[in-house]
């Protein structure tokens, strides 16, 4: 063990607080549309928000970060990477969501769908339990998925590789690999993008065919 349990808990806490602080700051900036004014104003506002969401108690002594953490729990490593993409987008560097292809979005939507249906008890097989990596079989299944994604040079492969390394170092409280690769926010974002993007394409194609 390189670090003690208490140090590990501290690292896990710090990581989650940082991800949520960044997320909330980015979200408020996007909602307030401050980023449309100037880079400098956005930056000042962003730095101020980083402190405010952490230090100002909003309800029963809890800060906004603590409040959100209570509601949604911890976020996955994948969501952390998605957040970095959002920051890129915020500062006008790139449209982050375009980094994922149709196949990657489909994979996340289907895998997440099966995982959550199973977690709610709609499927008798407990898919989540595979993520505890108790034997070489479950380990190789996850490694195979990431390997194929990397061979295809897909962004999701790199994202899940980071999640896999995070799992090895126990960067989250959970010791289930699924929690490093997925969380409901990540899945819902991918699902909504998938639905809106591909339904609009289908509608456009149908319309064009009719014309």
């Amino acid at each position: 063990m390189l670090v003690s349990n208490n140090e590990l808990l501290l690292v896990q806490d710090l990581l989650q607080d940082s991800i949520l602080t960044l997320s909330l700051a980015v979200l408020i900036i996007i909602l307030s549309q401050v980023y449309k004014k100037s880079f400098f104003v956005t930056l000042i506002f962003f730095v101020a928000l980083l402190s405010l969401v952490n230090l100002v108690p909003i309800y029963r002594g809890s800060s906004l970060v603590q409040f959100v953490r209570g509601g949604i729990g911890d976020v996955s490593v994948a969501s952390g990477v998605l957040l970095i993409m959002l920051v890129y987008r915020l500062f006008g560097m790139r449209n982050s969501l375009e980094l994922f292809t149709f196949f990657e979005r489909l994979l996340v939507v289907v895998l997440g769908g099966v995982l959550y249906l199973s977690a709610f008890g709609f499927i008798s097989l407990d898919v989540y339990s595979f993520g505890y990596i108790e034997n070489a079989f479950s380990l190789s299944a996850f490694v195979a998925i990431i390997f194929v994604l990397l061979i295809l040079n897909l962004t999701l492969g790199y994202v899940w590789l980071i999640a896999f390394i995070g799992y090895y170092f126990h960067l989250l409280e959970s010791h289930n690999l699924w929690d490093y690769m997925f969380d409901p926010i990540f899945w819902m974002v991918m699902l909504s993008v998938f639905i809106t993007k591909y339904t609009s394409i289908l509608i456009y194609k149908n319309k064009k065919a009719r014309d």
Binding site: I72, A119, G131, W178, D179
Partner: peptide, 11 residues
């Protein structure tokens, strides 16, 4: 100490 046992917001 919180125990994480569910993939859906751990709820």
């Amino acid at each position: 100490d919180r125990i994480v046992v569910s993939p859906f917001f751990n709820v």
